[in-house]
Design a protein around this nucleic acid. Structure first.
Lengths: 339, 339
DNA sequence: CCGGTTTAGGCAACCGGTTTACCGGTGACC
DNA sequence: GGTCACCGGTAAACCGGTTGCCTAAACCGG
């Protein structure tokens, strides 16, 4: 039971491989009689011919595959992003491979296996890994790439959202509820995406003339959020509201709040960046600012596919309005708590 | 800036492509002088030669890539599984690609693109998709595969854990706490992995002589767990403890309990199958039975790699002891609640 | 010194496509 | 009647490896 080859189709249709190839890829530079064309298509259909991408990849530059690097597959937010990217990639005729790009040694292996191995044509990078290491790898072995939800200097292309306005929205929401003593649980230091959030949030606070919110850093995990939240609440027990840099961390912050005998939302309001179904099911349901994951991923794929089609790299900032989803974790500051 | 080819290495070392290839793959059937061998290796090193897997895949059967099909990338449990599988695959010299295999149309596309496209050598399947559709696709286009955490009749190989003893452990834990009126939130109907859990849990209850626990089915998501939990608690308000088929659902069940004015654990104990860091950070921290995800994934990869190396398919049941992680969501039945 | 066996390595086919260059006929035009 | 421009294709090289088969030289015993 062998694989059906192009040659089989060609023989069945009574033409040469070359003609079969051109007809099936409808090469405009070839003139061919309509009935010959029909015979070839019929033969391909009948034999259930499927072109062999590996062979094609050898003949033409390009494998028809893109890879997406995410920092953590066990973070649902990235799963979501991959899903959208996958869909967008299919629409452009590519298949999308997902790979985890942790800080550990093996991360480079993944990169090596995929990129240097020539298995893929382009890279979508949502990795948290310090950009310079990645950029160096990319310089050593250039491959079209776009950073998504990160803006990296020296990168070919970046697609980002307006973090400033999102962080401002978080601030405004808390401020409108009467909160003045704010705190921020940020992602790990040195990660570009978290720094933007932090900077914008602090800037909004400064602009509004409220005290500069203390910041605690931690990994993008529940455990990371718990540790950072615990530290923040211990060192700054007077904060009444916290802006958390990711949903995963917010779960930990909620936990830390309970540990510190704070009741959310009564004695501590919590708002997180990122939205996923799970936010609705937490206790209390979490107020969030939704990141437009779908459009972000799709735009990244579009840019990358355009680059592969010869277009110059372009960066873009999505102009989607940040979407505040008010749930039960933020309430207006209790009267008796006000200073 | 062209890619370094085998031919470049050969020329630099003053030998032919053939010899270079044999030396670099250390083909034992070739006798070659030590200094020639050294020259070739030195040249490869100096030129930073990286073999081109695509070209190699065309020449020999096998691409060096494995794919893992999971039902949902946004479920962290599968992210975890992919991570372990990835590691195990690397150790065997393969790269692992992750793909989502939902019930939707595009699922077949993913399968088609990867398998029929000849991009991969074998398939790890943790998919929830009804096995018959997958099996049919596999029959149409045979490829070595192993089902992980599922036991599918007609499949080449299955690797599973002892669900019976895990479900029995859940039952025993609840029974020892004095619970008699139990309930079960199961996964979607028709999914093999959830049915095993359900069957074993009900069997344990029957064997112990307690009333047959009512069962509510739902998808493996927080929303699915919430809906099923709500239904279960509404139709059977007398249950005092619930066994939930997955961690994702348990988050929803916790939510449903609050909606039904039940306090976990005081008036409702909850135990879930699956363990992830997040379980510790929920409110209350969730008692779970840990699935040995790592060993499961690793064993799946081993079996698959062995098959690809020519070994006959073999199924295996991991004999890891089910691991009960008691946290705060299960307590002994309150005296005043006892019947 | 000669024939046979090793040793060390080369030639060329092949994997399954794509693409460049070319070719035999036919009709139009001068 | 000769030439030129299509039309409708084909043969063969190529992508970057792997591998079966072959051979020139060295070596070896007789």
């Amino acid at each position: 039971m062998r694989r059906v080859r192009l040659e089989d189709v060609a023989r069945a249709a009574g033409v040469s491989k070359a003609t079969a190839s051109r007809v099936l890829n409808d090469d405009p530079s070839l003139s061919v009689r309509a009935d010959t064309r029909a015979r070839i298509h019929a033969a391909a259909e009948r034999l259930e011919y499927r072109p062999h991408p590996v062979a094609r990849a050898l003949a033409v530059p390009g494998t028809g595959a893109l890879a997406m690097l995410v920092p953590e597959l066990s973070n649902p937010a990235y799963g979501e992003m991959i899903r959208f990217a996958y869909r967008a990639a299919r629409a452009r005729g590519y298949v999308l491979l997902a790979a985890e790009d942790t800080e550990e040694q093996e991360a480079d292996e993944a990169f090596t296996a995929l990129v240097e191995g020539g298995r893929i044509d382009g890279l979508l990078i949502a990795s948290a890994r310090p950009a310079n290491r990645l950029l160096e790898a990319l310089r050593r072995h250039p491959v079209p790439h776009v950073f998504v939800n990160r803006s990296v200097e020296g990168a070919l292309a970046n697609v980002t959202v307006d973090v400033e306005s999102a962080a401002r929205l978080a601030f405004t929401h808390l401020a409108q509820l009467g909160h003045v003593r704010l705190g921020h649980v940020a992602g790990p230091r040195g990660v570009q995406s978290t720094e933007g959030r932090e900077r914008a949030f602090l800037a909004a606070a400064t602009a509004a003339g409220v005290p500069l919110p203390p910041v605690a850093h931690g990994p993008f995990t529940p455990a990371g959020g718990a540790a950072a939240g615990e530290r923040l609440l211990r060192e700054h027990p007077d904060v009444t509201a916290v802006f958390v840099s990711s949903l995963a961390q917010a779960i930990g912050v909620l936990h830390a709040a309970r540990g510190a005998a704070r009741v959310v939302p009564e004695t501590l309001s919590v708002i997180a960046y990122d939205d996923l179904p799970i936010a609705h099911f937490l206790d209390p349901p979490l107020t969030t600012i939704a990141l437009p994951i779908g459009p972000l991923a799709a735009e990244g794929v579009e840019i990358l596919a355009d680059m592969l089609a010869g277009a110059p790299p372009r960066s873009s900032v999505l102009d989607a309005e940040p979407d505040l989803r008010v749930r039960a974790s933020t309430v207006s500051l209790q009267r008796e708590e006000r200073t």
